[in-house]
Nucleic acid binder design. Structure first.
Length: 487
RNA sequence: GGCGACGUACCCAAGUGGUUAAGGGAGAGGUCUGCAAAACCUUUAUUCGUCGGUUCGAAUCCGACCGUCGCCUCCA
């Protein structure tokens, strides 16, 4: 597949500028996104992050790039509280649920993928686990010690931030500021309070521990991302994504570890997505104001949630409320209604409708211009609404003489954009080409019979058909172009 | 205290120097319709937190102020 004309610009958090995106290796893109720590069900904040990056990956693929998308599963080393102290989050959850840590990890990893599947988020190509990469992490620590960037104290190994001159370049901080900014100082064996743990010594009761040159212990949180991104994408790679709140210290530390160990630049583009808020306040696990995805889909359709999230830019905060989601749901239904109509018509005419083909081209340009501009999905959606207005007008005067070519152009653009890139069409719309399958035949039969009844003005029976179908989740709408159904 | 972001209609949300300030939801009026739903048309910000400045020209750049939020401690 060849690369389409590439005019993609991405806002790079590292340089604080929109930059033209040109991958390191022609035609290939490596992207790493910080994945979840699997100690609880995912919430809408996760949904925003992973849906946003899903569209990034889908768009890059649409442009013709061969994309390798790596997203880690953090299953060890993520500590409960400040300054590298406190209990491991997974271990704590295991204690609470009276399970093995790896059972906790397994349960919530499955739960995470279930949620992502239902939100139509494509799976990463590789989902490496921290606990599966202990030898690599130990090796990296050894390299860092050898090169003088890390030191061991009584079974703990720390990264010496003063040894790495670039520390703070991503988050825009200097070490001096950090010293002054430190809150309550924790007693610690660190040489500098800003140093962070690469390896933590495990107490004998600790459930997760591995042998290392420094005794039994477990890796620090930041290390896994450095290791696994390097292993699967190379020491320098194209895009690193994650939540804004992880810029510091997590991403800053990743850069320090990787660049110190490899002596090469780390990620070229850093993308940070913004937060979901509730009444203006960040939705977060520690605040307890979160709505899990599993709860959200009880009240709203998964695609409406996805569409709602894509309705604001990934770098903007998104305030969640049930009302806002309901409004989004209506907007999405409008899109679905038009797509359903389009997919139900049978092109018979021969003429090529140049005027309408031109509208399709206008839409293509607007849609792609929007995504080329730092994945501006709200603008792409606005362009879609402009276009569906055009489609509706076109359908009402020309549907009977639609040419197959024009129809094909229309169907393929809808399929590429709404299903392929934005991922907001339901499964029933995915096979756009021909209506095949038993259900379609049965539905056609019912619709034909019902329309016969309507002609005979037997509305009691025709309404009963519609009502009973509605009760089993199939909607019939009588439009000027004929009756359409969707489930 | 330090670093950073944001403030656009009733609600959500694009737009970051130049003709009439996108789009969605909600509201109002109309066309269509057996009904329902949808669709279509019209309509709802002389104005972009406030006050100054730069400019021929600013929502867009600069400054101050007010307000909200994020990070500096785990969080997508």
């Amino acid at each position: 597949m060849s690369i389409k004309k590439n005019n993609l610009h991405i806002y790079n958090s590292l340089t604080r500028n929109k930059e033209k995106f040109i991958p390191l290796n022609p035609g290939v893109v490596g992207i790493y996104v910080c994945g979840p720590t699997v100690y609880g069900d995912s919430h809408l904040g996760h949904a925003k992050s992973y849906i946003s990056f899903d569209v990034v990956v889908r768009y890059l693929r649409f442009l013709g790039y061969k994309v390798r998308y790596v997203q880690n599963i953090t299953d060890v080393g993520h500590l409960q509280s400040d300054a590298d102290e406190g209990e491991d989050k997974i271990a704590e959850q295991a204690r609470l649920e009276q399970l093995e840590p790896m059972e906790v990890v397994e349960n919530y990893t499955r739960s995470y993928f279930e949620d992502m599947d239902i939100l139509n988020v494509s799976r990463p190509d590789i989902s490496p686990r921290a606990s599966g990469h202990i030898p690599e992490q130990i090796e990296m620590i050894e390299t860092l010690i050898k090169k003088g960037f890390a030191y061991e104290v009584a079974g703990n190994v720390y990264f010496a931030v003063e040894k790495f001159p670039g520390y703070g370049k991503l988050s825009g901080r200097s070490l001096n500021e950090m010293k002054e900014g430190h809150r309550v100082e924790v007693q610690s064996d660190k040489k500098n309070p800003s140093d962070f743990a690469l390896w933590k010594k495990a107490e004998p009761v600790h459930l997760m521990q591995w042998k290392s040159p420094w005794g039994k212990g477990y890796p620090g949180w930041h290390l896994e991302c450095s290791c696994m991104s390097g292993k699967y994408l190379g020491e320098t790679f194209d895009i690193h994504g994650g939540g804004m709140e992880n810029k510091f210290p997590h991403h800053e530390s990743e850069i320090a570890q990787s660049e110190a160990a490899n002596e090469k630049p780390f990620a070229r583009f850093w993308m940070h997505n913004n937060m979901v808020t509730v009444d203006g306040v960040k939705m977060g696990k520690s605040l307890g104001n979160f709505t899990t995805i599993k709860d959200a889909v009880k009240k709203h359709s998964p695609l409406a949630i996805r569409y709602f999230i894509l309705g604001s830019h990934y770098r903007s905060t998104l305030d969640f409320s049930s009302d806002a989601l309901a409004a989004a749901d209506k907007g999405l239904q409008k899109i679905h209604a038009v797509v359903s109509k389009v997919f139900n018509i049978q092109p018979t005419g021969k003429e090529i409708d140049h005027e309408f083909e031109n509208e399709i081209e206008v839409y293509k340009k607007q849609f792609q211009d929007a995504l080329d501009d730092d994945f501006n999905t709200p603008r792409a959606i606005a362009a879609t609404f402009d276009f569906i207005k055009k489609i509706n007008t076109w359908l009402s005067d020309k549907a009977d003489k639609v040419s197959y070519n024009t129809y094909e152009s229309l169907v393929s653009v809808l399929r590429d954009y709404l299903n392929g890139i934005l991922g907001i069409l339901p499964d029933t719309f995915k096979q756009a080409e021909v209506n095949v399958g038993k259900l379609d035949d049965v539905m056609q039969l019912l619709i034909d019979l019902r329309n016969q009844l309507r002609k005979e003005k037997n509305f009691a029976l025709s309404d009963e058909i519609r009502d009973r179908l509605s009760a089993i989740g199939i909607t019939i709408k009588d439009t000027p172009e004929g009756s359409v159904w969707e489930s």
